[in-house]
Design a protein around this nucleic acid. Structure first.
Lengths: 186, 186
DNA sequence: ACCTGAACACCGTTCAAGT
DNA sequence: ACCTGAACACCGTTCAAGT
């Protein structure tokens, strides 16, 4: 099988799932593909861009809620879906958070939300979605880190249900705040 | 000057300010102190704990707002102070965010806020402060990254005023949400 | 065009040996 | 007790040389 950008991304995802972000090195990706590390640089400019590509791959699994949902419900569903997608893959939240912070990555998970808020006449759609996104990423990074530490035996008990409840509460807080600036909704 | 934990932390802060988190290596800290890298491990168990100590040092500069402020104002002031402290030091937001996510670090920046919310009879003080903290950290990490990219000439324009306004908006969103669960306040 | 081999300039951490 | 010297097992990235 000839080396390609696609194969590199796929190998990266495999290592991410199996060993985590900390063990995802260019040399390891090359090993999996049976190739020298330097060969990767013919298809990918550097490690950061590979990580951004992995982030895009993960974020592409996020599907938008149905557009006929009321805005508040739409936002809650969007956040829950994003959380689920991130939790599904090892260290995905950390990977996506840093990729987005660096402005790399072609997929903008908040884009459809901004559109929806604009349609709805909500003020500051950009700042609103940024706040929501920061909350989701921060929460899931912590959630995922704690879950992993628990599975490694470092952390004694991890309350998954409590963590989800906490997510729901924070989400409700923000969405309640948004609701007060929606012109049409009661 | 004899090597000590204090001296190591101070050297670490110096490197953080001068070269940033990416260039903060144990070997570099040792160089600054005129010592072999291995010597550090007599005073500090590993790099992560040193980073946690640096995070604690930074967070210790956060002062609580006056207790006679109304809760909503108290929260806004707290978040603004935390943001200012993080912005004051290079890569501080990223450092603190990862240190907190890993559960290292002795300083809990949300502790006083949880107390205040509990006093006030607000529901879910833990989840509320977690949401607020995640928002602040996420926002400032992005802010600090963009500011740095701008100063490096990678990012064309960085709107500092817009960034602050966006922070204020997101903060207001969350605090408005909290207000609705405060029993006493109108 | 695409990959190898080998190098460059680094890492964090450990540990026998010295003082 | 505290530090050196040297090693171990890695990194990301570059680049002449081969095919």
């Amino acid at each position: 099988m000839a080396l390609s950008r696609r194969a590199i991304v796929e190998a990266g995802l495999g290592i991410l799932d199996a060993y985590g972000l900390g063990d995802l090195s260019m040399r390891r990706v090359a090993d999996v593909l049976g190739v020298q590390a330097g060969a990767l640089y013919y298809h990918v400019p550097n490690k950061q861009s590979l990580l951004a590509a992995l982030g895009d791959e993960i974020l592409s699994e996020v599907s938008d809620p149905r557009p006929d949902e009321p805005v508040a419900d739409w936002l809650v569903e969007w956040a829950a879906t994003l959380r689920k997608v991130l939790l599904a893959r090892r260290d995905a939240a950390e990977l996506v958070a840093s990729s987005l912070a660096l402005g790399l990555g072609a997929v903008d998970p908040a884009a459809s939300g901004r559109e929806r808020l604009t349609m709805e006449g909500v003020e500051q759609p950009e700042a609103t979605m940024a706040a929501l996104l920061h909350f989701v990423l921060g929460h899931v990074v912590e959630e995922q880190t704690r879950a992993q530490m628990h599975s490694l035996g470092v952390l004694a008990d991890f309350d998954a249900a409590g963590s989800e409840a906490s997510f729901g509460w924070g989400l409700g807080l923000i969405v309640r705040g948004v609701k007060q600036t929606v012109p049409t909704t009661p």
